[in-house]
């Protein structure tokens, strides 16, 4: 990841009187796999369509290599899109679909044939040239759509929930393949999904969005381990979220006890929220822990047990490989680095 390729600056978008984007600031780098992650309706597609050139922002700038492009029509941008439901041309066969962009550019027929063949090989559809696209499976159509976009050698590929219509197994495989293709062609992928697991497995950078605003930008590990607010913590994985106060640097208080932590830079006695991931909690003997409670429910989940522990104030969710029978009095322990302190949000 080297140079800045795309910069979104204070981007807003209104549809009628509804504000859909409320000031998006985002830098996207060369060769980056960046994912816009957020619940349905948060403005991911709109952001993507502004980058592609199908929508103009209501205000703000879109820079491409430092040049403002928000008024440039889509066909003049070195950006191609893989659409949500593929949008293959039904009146053209596989090869003609893929060659569509090259034909428009009047590329030599023999060159086109070569490139199409190379693309089909890359997406694993060798020999499919003459097939009718409407008779292909969802996964195959998706591959054609990817080939159709990549054959134009764009600097950026936009993918809007490209795996949304596929069943779980093909989805997993395509996730892996997409990542591989991105590394092979070495261009920027901007990927949209509402599936947090997909975002975490594939991306270099995850951008969590909600309600037309960016909540957090970071690597998958950062996003998972250091959610900046309750929304991110809730959206990414399962969490115990507890209100508390930051006594001072490295010391936090919640549920009536003070705990060591690794966070600093908050004001003294600032109201904050704490995230404890279920897999970071351990069941110990009651006398070894500050937090104690009674096991309410234990469910076997395959690799681990999911155990609900009821304390005086709340129910903690714990994921552990150790069994604890319901009704037992237990303690909850965790390490200082497992305590993630977040700014408190008003709205959620």
């Amino acid at each position: 990841m080297s140079n800045k390729l795309i910069e979104l600056k204070d981007l807003t978008k209104n549809f009628d009187d509804q504000q859909v984007l409320r000031g998006i600031n985002l830098d996207i780098y060369e060769n980056e796999f960046l994912t816009l992650l957020g619940p349905s309706g948060c403005g991911k597609t709109t952001t993507l369509r502004i980058i592609a050139g199908f929508e103009e922002p209501s205000s703000g700038e879109v820079l491409f290599n430092g040049i403002e492009i928000s008024k440039l029509p889509p066909y003049k941008r070195e950006i191609n899109t893989v659409f949500q439901k593929y949008a293959l041309f039904p009146h053209l066969n596989v090869a003609d679909n893929i060659a569509f962009g090259l034909n428009l550019k009047k590329v030599d027929k023999s060159v086109i044939a070569q490139k199409v063949e190379r693309m089909l090989k890359m997406v694993g559809l060798e020999g499919f040239e003459k097939r009718d696209v409407t008779l292909l499976s969802g996964g195959q159509q998706q591959r054609v759509a990817i080939a159709r976009a990549l054959v134009n050698e764009p600097k950026v590929l936009l993918l809007d929930e490209p795996l949304g219509a596929l069943d779980a197994k093909i989805r997993k495989q395509m996730q892996f393949e997409l990542k591989k293709i991105q590394q092979e062609v070495g261009i920027t992928f901007i990927y949209v999904t509402h599936d947090q697991e997909e975002a975490l497995t594939m991306s270099d950078t995850v951008v969590v969005m909600n309600n037309g605003e960016i909540q957090q930008i970071g690597s998958p590990i950062d996003i998972y381990n250091e959610p900046e607010n309750r929304f991110v913590a809730n959206f990414i994985g399962e969490s115990n979220i507890i209100e508390g106060v930051m006594v001072k640097d490295f010391l936090v208080e919640f549920d009536g006890f003070r705990f060591e932590c690794v966070d600093k830079g908050f004001e003294e006695m600032e109201e904050i929220e704490v995230v404890l991931r279920p897999e970071d909690l351990d069941i110990v003997a009651p006398e070894d822990a500050k937090l104690t409670g009674v096991v309410q429910n234990t469910t076997f989940k395959g690799v681990h047990y999911e155990i609900l522990v009821k304390t005086d104030l709340r129910i903690y969710k714990v994921q552990t490989t150790d069994y604890a029978e319901p009704g037992r009095k237990v303690g909850l322990s965790f390490e200082p680095e497992d305590v993630h302190v977040m700014y408190k949000m008003g709205a959620y």
């Binding site: 889509p74 041309f89 569509f100």
Partner: peptide, 21 residues
Amino acid sequence: DWRLVEAARDLGAGRMRAFLT
């Protein structure tokens, strides 16, 4: 399917070309 027109524009077609193709 109007997304097909967008797909054509995305792949390098101007408005007229997208209409014709």
